[in-house]
């Protein structure tokens, strides 16, 4: 009897009428966020894609259709090409460097017995600064007249004269890279540290019994078990580096003479300062497509190496 009542109650709960009511409730609850997403994400995305096929500029806001003219033009633009290659190179180097340093720091801190919490707090310091401030700070570090780096090198007797860090093509890219890595390493280190600390100590004890050395334990236990954490860290890191507009704008602004031009400095200059909205939109879409392809490739490689 009791079972029967329960069954009919269940039936009642999932009756078509109730189900329809429940789904109406779900739709009603989701609707506001869907509307917001349509207005804030979907509509601008589709509209800017449409704009990228027009001659729209901020000074002459006329949306005359001009086929692939913007796309043809950006392919012929040597500065766009250079900015594109610079960006790929910059991301490749800084993401790898920040990842390796974060991994190293996480392992070092995980093995620290005294003062671990102090080290963890210190690690957070770069995350407390606004990227704009980091840009200003490093611009001053690398200033050729009054900068910290040249002063230290001169006091140590390693340098006679001054190095124009933010003028030479490779030195300038290096300086921006240092600032970017400094800013982004802690996130990686903290995520990987959390991962490392979550690994059961029993695994290491068993490995000790088998006579494994430190590297073998890292290679066979820590690294594979960190897999999901590495994925999260790399995803956040890639996004953070790809949002690094502030640092490069403040430190060099893409100059001098386009030497440190990245897509983040070039696209806003074309779209906003030069008012060429349509061309800027086309550049953004090419960038997004290439970024997606790059991400897919990255994750496929990660899967292959069984990290994921």
């Amino acid at each position: 009897m009791a079972q029967l009542t329960q069954a009919s109650a269940l039936e009642g709960r999932f009756s078509p009428a109730r189900r329809a009511k429940a789904s109406r409730f779900v739709v009603a609850m989701l609707a506001p966020s869907v509307v917001v997403i349509i207005f804030v994400v979907a509509f601008p995305l589709i509209y800017s894609f449409y704009l990228s096929f027009t001659s729209f500029t901020l000074l002459r806001p006329v949306t005359a259709w001009n086929d692939f003219a913007n796309y043809r033009r950006l392919l012929q633009d040597p500065i766009f090409g250079q900015a594109f290659i610079n960006t790929l190179l910059f991301m490749f180097v800084t993401i790898n460097a920040a990842f390796l340093m974060g991994l190293f720091l996480s392992q070092a801190i995980a093995r620290t017995i005294r003062g671990q919490s102090l080290l963890r707090t210190m690690l957070m310091v770069p995350m407390m600064f606004a990227p704009v401030m980091i840009g200003f700070q490093f611009r001053w570090f690398f200033n050729d007249q009054v900068g910290l780096v040249n002063n230290v090198l001169t006091s140590l007797g390693l340098l006679n004269g001054s190095i124009p860090w933010l003028v030479d093509r490779w030195l300038a890219m290096f300086s921006i890279g240092v600032a970017t890595v400094w800013m982004n390493t802690p996130v990686v280190a903290i995520i990987l540290l959390a991962g490392t600390l979550s690994i059961s100590p029993e695994l290491y004890e068993a490995a000790d019994v088998d006579g494994a050395n430190g590297w073998q334990k890292f290679r066979s236990i820590t690294y594979p078990l960190l897999g999901p954490f590495i994925t999260i860290a790399l995803t956040i890191l890639s996004l953070d580096v790809a949002r690094g507009f502030d640092i490069v704008s403040i430190m060099t602004g893409g100059g001098p003479a386009h030497r440190t031009e990245l897509l983040w400095t070039y696209v806003p200059r074309v779209a906003i300062q030069d008012s060429k909205f349509a061309l800027g939109a086309a550049m953004s879409f090419v960038t997004v497509i290439v970024t997606i392809a790059f991400t897919l490739y990255l994750f496929r490689q990660l899967l292959k190496s069984r990290i994921l």
Partner: peptide, 22 residues
């Protein structure tokens, strides 16, 4: 002209390249 800033965005990098000897 309305395009004064876009004009300088073309001219300035070229002047920099001239100064730097590029």
């Amino acid at each position: 002209i309305a395009e004064w800033i876009p004009l300088t965005n073309i001219l300035t990098p070229k002047l920099q390249a001239i100064m730097l000897g590029d």
